[in-house]
Nucleic acid binder design. Structure first.
Length: 457
DNA sequence: CGACGGGACGC
DNA sequence: CGACGGGACGC
């Protein structure tokens, strides 16, 4: 309220650019200015004095233009004597005026930054990116506890506040670096499917209700309770002979299949077993749930089990999350316009034999995979993409749209069936549109996708 | 122990 | 037909 009277005179802008000094009462503004101006552009020096006596209270404030300057001055000047024979001064980052607190701001709160990074970043990548601003104590990437995937967020702890401040001021804007909140408070988890409040929210979200828990012609096997282990790796056993291609096609109906191989005996005959791996737990859980007990060919019940590959472990929360992911997978499969009519009671054999093919199948020939452009690339062109009936998963879109080169990012507008493919090169966007635009349909539900050009952000 | 002034209105 | 975001850590 009181701040509203002086909106344009925020003394703590940018944050942490003001110092709080405790000095001998004999220290004057000029002495402070003389010493502290070595570290940056000083906007203001204020020695607090008694209203009546005009004597210094031994407290001063020094406002710098930048937080990094203030931090450096603090680090260099704390504990120094400004004048021979006076007591050593104490220097802290001043509490924001609006905070009301007079607690010392500790280095702990000033040395750790929080950044948004590409999901492909390893901790070493993170370190390499941010070490130019100072010695790093450690780097941490926030990962999904269940799948181990990066959430695209990271923490970098520096040794000194000035290093963290310099990183925040000078790193690429795409990292959106800010000071990290201290670790103990506001622990609002984000992928907490276990929380009742969150579950209600998901149900009430218009963007999510389009992923109904409908059942299809797939066999649905009981439950996931009990002692099943949850992994991305599946073993399929069949008594009747099935070919590699049949198994591949069957399991490839679920997005995210990384690997599928029939086991063979020493004579080259099928053992009736196949190993299948997905790139995410949700797909594997879904595949097991739907294909375990499925009759293929009719009368032959397949047995599908998770295989402990030593990577994924069961957990109640993970299981809960997997159910939701599985529901989305189901919807995607159900909505596939040209997916084979896979029904337990269906007469014909399901999927036609498909030789080793990319896990994303489209009606048009796709170029090979290409690396993404660096996430901080300037976006030269964006494609506006409309999905009917539903958007594909992010990773599938990335797989398709990266093939034209220089893809920077896939962005889906939440709750709407539209999104943007951001490219660093105009030609890549043009090529993608030429290949995928209108009339071309992917084998999944990327149908009726249209694109047009808009101005880059 | 050691925490919040002074100045002052635009094109 | 449609249209422009997002942030948190196993003690």
């Amino acid at each position: 309220m009181e701040d509203a009277f002086r909106p344009s005179t925020d003394l703590d802008d940018p944050p942490n650019s003001r110092l709080f000094l405790v000095t001998s009462k004999s220290i004057t503004e000029d002495m402070i200015r003389e010493q502290f101006s070595l570290y940056g552009e000083i906007q203001d020096v204020w020695v607090v004095k008694d209203k009546q006596t005009k004597e210094s209270k031994g407290v001063s404030f020094v406002k710098f233009t930048k937080s990094s300057e203030a931090c450096t001055a603090m680090e260099e000047m704390h504990g120094k004597c400004l004048v021979e024979g006076t007591k050593p001064i104490k220097v802290f980052i001043a509490q924001a005026r609006s905070s009301g607190s007079h607690r010392d701001v500790e280095d702990e709160e000033l040395t750790r930054i929080f950044v948004m990074i590409p999901k492909t970043f390893t901790e070493d990548d993170l370190k390499d990116t941010f070490k130019e601003y100072g010695d790093i104590e450690y780097c941490i990437i926030v990962k999904n506890k269940t799948t181990g995937e990066s959430k695209g967020l990271g923490y970098v702890r520096y040794h000194k506040p000035s290093q963290a401040a310099t990183a925040i001021e000078n790193c690429e804007k795409t990292y959106r670096a800010i000071l990290a909140e201290p670790r103990n408070k506001t622990p609002a988890p984000d992928n907490d499917y276990f929380s009742p409040a969150r579950a209600e929210h998901v149900q009430g979200d218009p963007g999510m209700t389009s992923y109904p828990f409908v059942d299809s012609g797939f066999h649905t096997r009981g439950d996931m309770r009990g002692t099943d282990i949850i992994t991305r790796c599946l073993m399929m056993s069949s008594r009747a002979s099935v070919t590699q291609d049949q198994v591949y096609s069957l399991f490839d109906l679920i997005p995210g299949m990384d690997y599928c191989e029939m086991q063979q005996d020493s004579y080259g005959f099928s053992t009736g077993q196949a190993m299948i791996r997905y790139n995410n737990l949700g797909s594997a859980v879904y595949a097991k749930n739907k294909l375990d007990g499925f009759e293929y060919p009719p009368g032959n019940r397949l047995v599908v089990t998770h295989v402990d590959d030593g990577q994924d472990r069961r957990s109640p929360v993970g299981r809960m999350a997997m159910q939701l992911v599985a529901a989305q997978m189901m919807s995607i499969v159900c909505n596939a316009p040209s997916a084979p009519p896979l029904r337990k009671t269906s007469a014909g054999y399901p999927p036609p034999a498909v030789p080793q093919s990319p896990r994303v199948q489209t009606d048009v020939a796709l170029p090979p995979l290409q690396k993404l452009a660096p996430s901080d690339s300037r976006v030269k062109e964006r494609l506006f993409v409309v999905f009917k009936p539903l958007p594909l998963p992010m990773d599938v879109l990335e797989d398709v749209f990266c093939r034209f080169g220089s893809l920077v990012e896939v962005f889906l507008v939440p709750g709407r069936n539209v999104g943007y493919m951001k490219y660093a090169e105009r030609k890549s966007a043009d090529d993608a549109m030429a290949t995928l635009h209108e009339g071309h349909r992917t084998r999944d539900d990327l149908s009726d996708m249209t694109s047009n050009m808009t101005e880059p952000t």
